[in-house]
């Protein structure tokens, strides 16, 4: 779910909007360094895939369901810079074409999901891969852990935005507890689904997974 209009005040929205815009600009530069126009259709298709993947609802518990955010999924599949761009594109399209998420809050949403979830989550992924032994199953586990943590990081990032410019007089501690509580459950689902999707792709097209190289396989003998 995205932040609607009227939840965070204008100066805070503008500040985070500027940070998000700078981040998107920087990601564009980084992607441009090593990618050519060949990757533009691929990035577009990846964005369409993330949008479609967000439509897949999975059962969480007792009749409730959650859906993917896809930040870490995209980062493990296509690298963190591309994933930031893809999430930003998805959020702009959802806000402007589908009225999902406030237009004044696009910067806030891109900051939480395109920057914090992707970069924080990818950092956790790299860290987990360093700690865990080599091999495909460990890449899957690292992606799952990273995806779960990324959801909680995004929830904390929202709490920070609310603490700075929230338009409601609710104790920040209450907001943090509620956000982290709910998002621990969602994060568990996100982690499990991300791990299973990465595992499915690794078994058929491991060459398409950015976060995995065959050199990671443990050497035998």
């Amino acid at each position: 779910m995205h932040i609607p209009d009227g939840f965070i005040n204008v100066p805070t929205s503008a500040g985070f909007g500027a940070m998000s815009a700078a981040w998107v600009w920087y990601s564009l530069r980084r992607v441009g360094e090593f990618l050519d126009d060949r990757r533009i259709p691929l990035a577009g298709l990846l964005a369409a895939f993330v949008f479609a993947a967000q439509m897949i609802n999975f059962p969480v518990a007792a009749g409730t369901s959650g859906h993917l955010i896809g930040g870490v999924l995209a980062a493990v599949l296509a690298g963190p810079w591309m994933a930031s761009l893809v999430l930003a594109v998805v959020l702009v399209v959802q806000g402007i074409f589908f009225a999902d998420g406030g237009l004044s809050a696009i910067g806030l949403n891109v900051f939480n999901l395109g920057l914090v979830a992707v970069v924080g989550g990818y950092g956790v992924f790299l860290l987990a891969r360093r700690v865990l032994p080599a091999g495909k199953p460990m890449v899957v586990i690292a992606a799952g852990i990273a995806a779960g943590v990324s959801v909680i990081l995004a929830a904390l990032s929202f709490t920070l935005q609310f603490a700075i410019g929230g338009e409601a007089d609710v104790a920040v501690g209450t907001v943090a507890a509620a956000m982290v509580g709910v998002h621990s459950l969602i994060g568990a689902g996100e982690g499990l689904i991300t791990a299973m999707v990465i595992s499915a792709i690794l078994s058929s097209r491991p060459d398409l997974v950015y976060g995995y190289t065959p050199a990671m396989e443990p050497t035998h003998g």
Binding site: V24, L28, V31, G32, I40, P41, A43, G44, L45, A47, A48, F51, L85, V86, A88, V89, V90, V92, V93
Partner: peptide, 9 residues
């Protein structure tokens, strides 16, 4: 590039 990605999406 941003608009191009959005168009393909």
């Amino acid at each position: 590039v941003f608009v191009a990605i959005m168009s393909f999406m």
